[in-house]
Design a protein around this nucleic acid. Sequence first.
DNA 1: ACAAGTATGACGTTTAGC
DNA 2: GCTAAACGTCATACTTGT
Length: 519
Amino acid sequence: MGSNGDSDDIDWSDDEVRTCSSVSSVSVHIPVFTPPTCESSTSGSKINNRFLEMGYPSRVVLKAMEEHGEDDEEAILNAILTYLGQNKYFETMNLLEDMGFQYDEAFTAINRCGLETPIEELVEFIDAAKMGKEDDLQDLQVELNDAGQSRNGKKQKLSREERWTDTGKRMPLMIGFGVPNVGIKTIHREIPDAGKGPPYFYYENVAYTPKGVWENMSRFLYEIEPEFVDSMHFSAAARKRGYIHNLPIDERFPILPIPPSTIQEALPITNKWWPKWDLRTKLNCILIRHGSAEDTKKIKEELDKSGPDPPEHVRKNVLEQCRKYNFVWVGKNKVAPLDLDEIEVIMEFSKCHTRGGGISTTARYQCLGNSFQVDTVAYHLSVLKKLFPSGINVLSLFSGLGGAEVALHRLGIPLKFVVSVESSETCRNILQSWWEQSNQQGTLINIFDVRDVTLGKLKELMDMSHGFDLVIGGSPCNNLAGRNRYTRDGIYGDQSSLFFDYFRILDLVKKITVYRGYG
DNA sequence: ACAAGTATGACGTTTAGC
DNA sequence: GCTAAACGTCATACTTGT
């Protein structure tokens, strides 16, 4: 934590790590889906443009505006969602759940049978799926029903709080302080004074770390309780991440249109070849490496050998491999790893975000596997739109592909001044070319190494920008991630210890902000 | 040939929740 | 005890450019 010989005009004596009582009481209520609220606007063409920017087909937008006038944005959005079948989706989900089916059952049924399938057939599908899973699933069902009735002495649907894997295992839902459509928690949370902005900050890392890591990080980050969210609630792939931030959590909204949230919707070309006995509707976490060609070959050979109705042990083995390597079905008995453009879209970057400019395939897989899932982060950042209508100054640490920048841009928050700190030249190039292509009007400054972000450098940057509104970043997870067999050393590991630079820089920005009266 | 960059097979353990 | 998942690392072979 050297201050590089800067002449200090602030008291930089080492802070004790703050000990604040972090209190948060949680209450839960379960609303049905409501479309995101939109500010009222004065001109119809403005609204039109906004919906078009959101990516809705112009024909649909025009039709909605014809029927609902030009000013009632909420009614127009509602109509668009109806035309696109999204309202129907939520209605059907709610109906099935009201009938007593679990979230995942309803989810799978709709996504396997299609939205237009009559409700009776969906019910049949679910029942049939259950029969196919034999005794263990029946036992599970009994167990779930029992649990559903006994919890808190009140009948309660477990599906809102928990989900089941396609093998029937119960998993935590990981919805943090709420996600769209699944069930929104109403939460009152107190942020300890030391953690309050300005600046706002947002820190991200993998949810499953060695024991004690999140407690440790939380202790540094002002005792703020982490929010754990699985991006499966925003996209077709799981991504269990923890976020420590001091953002408000009321009135969050997702970026629109809501992207496909199942494998079947996101990768429709796989439907034709997807076997009935592969019940996956969600991909596992997208990693930095893809599965091997050798493994896909073995799967094909094994299935070709066992004929049209493979025996249980073959299915089990194939499914195990598919889950492990995130294989999808691309031909008869033929699985393949995800393509790069498929990953780009699932992470909610645009197609070709990482393509070209001399970047190798391996490097693309790597930086995409390291990235934010944009919808998830955008949902959390959406509260900034109201707070910074004229634009935002961002210090983006460990920027990578620019997930934070893309999220803010997609939310329609102008990027006035962005300092991006990123050690990979490849990633800096990708962010730089996105910046140019997306027609940014603000300033982008690239810095190579977080260690170069000293007190003096920060003062210089904050003089230029009049302070930072948001400090955002996810520090390296190498030494935390479960897949690491060699150097899962925890927060003090070679790469993951850069967390402390995140903290150092954030804390310096806080102090400069107070001292100079920014914000 | 050689170096540098790229692709790929092989490789357990620690979480968490029953 | 069980199952399931996990922003990965290392060594080596291959490819590309000079």
